[in-house]
């Protein structure tokens, strides 16, 4: 069990809802992941093709903690506006502050992220910013009052896994608020590693929705997170430079 703001969670897997091939697969993957938190985006309605499938339209968001993102925003004003739209519609239990500052890498703009968080905190939101592996920014955001920080594993959609474990560990060790590793996850070994490093939860999307079998991958991710968390609690052995026999050195006189 862990808490973000006033919300309590048993599941450590937060799931994005983008790019699923169809509604049925999405629903089954959500069930298999056992997530309690769904992330989604706000967009203009496509008026020319209103029948375009929107798998999200048929999910009862009321059954989940709603965690809209501000994806698409590149300024503080746009970020706040998206949050206000989601909040107005009653589907903004927590807000994922995502302000992209670079088109090629989709890395977040740290300054705009900080400023948007400040405004949204003032307005009473439960604020979780998506950030680079920036230890100082994570600290300053915590001091500002955000409810969790969400450092990336690697750039969005790359599936490259944990790119900077050292910084991630620094961020986790210094934090007194939950740390959710978000973006760049490729396979269960990545979520396991993040949880071993001490992360509180994982937010992922493409690693499940883009898998050949999203339902099976959702289950694998859930188990990977559980394994990593147990490993973190169990305390792993130190890494050594040279070998150390696991069988006794004594009692070899018969050889």
């Amino acid at each position: 069990m862990f808490k973000i703001g006033n919300f309590e969670f048993d599941s450590r897997l937060f799931l994005g809802t983008g790019k699923f091939s169809d509604e049925n697969t999405q629903t089954k993957a959500i069930m298999a992941s056992e997530t309690e938190v769904l992330t989604f985006a706000v967009r203009r309605m496509n008026l020319y093709d209103k029948d375009l499938p929107n798998p999200l339209a048929n999910i009862d968001l009321k059954n989940y903690v709603t965690f809209p993102n501000t994806a698409g925003a590149t300024t503080v004003e746009e970020t706040v506006r998206i949050a206000e739209i989601a909040n107005h519609a009653g589907v903004c239990d927590m807000i994922k502050v995502e302000v992209i500052g670079d088109d090629r890498t989709l890395l977040p703009d740290p300054i705009a992220t900080y400023e948007a968080c400040e405004i949204l905190l003032d307005k009473g939101y439960t604020v979780c910013p998506y950030i680079s592996n920036d230890v100082v920014l994570a600290k300053k955001l915590e001091e500002l009052g955000v409810h969790a920080v969400m450092p990336l594993a690697s750039p969005i959609g790359t599936g490259r896994g944990i790119n900077n474990p050292l910084n991630l560990r620094y961020i986790i060790e210094q934090a007194n608020i939950p740390v959710i590793v978000d973006a760049g996850i490729g396979s269960p070994k990545d979520v396991c590693y993040a949880m071993e490093l001490g992360a509180d939860a994982i937010l992922l999307n493409t690693a499940i929705s883009g898998a050949e079998d999203p339902v099976k991958m959702a289950q694998a991710m859930k188990l990977g997170i559980e394994a990593g968390m147990l490993s973190n609690q169990a305390g792993r052995i130190p890494v050594r430079y040279t070998a150390q026999a696991s069988s006794p050195a004594e009692g070899l006189g018969f050889l």
Binding site: T17, T39, V42, R44, A71, I156, N205
Partner: peptide
Amino acid sequence: ELLRKKSFDHHLVRSDDRLELLEFVGGG
């Protein structure tokens, strides 16, 4: 101005007004 759903029935759209129709879509 964001509208409440319950005001849809009586909120009049007049000439030259601007509307944004937005929805929630999949995203991570």
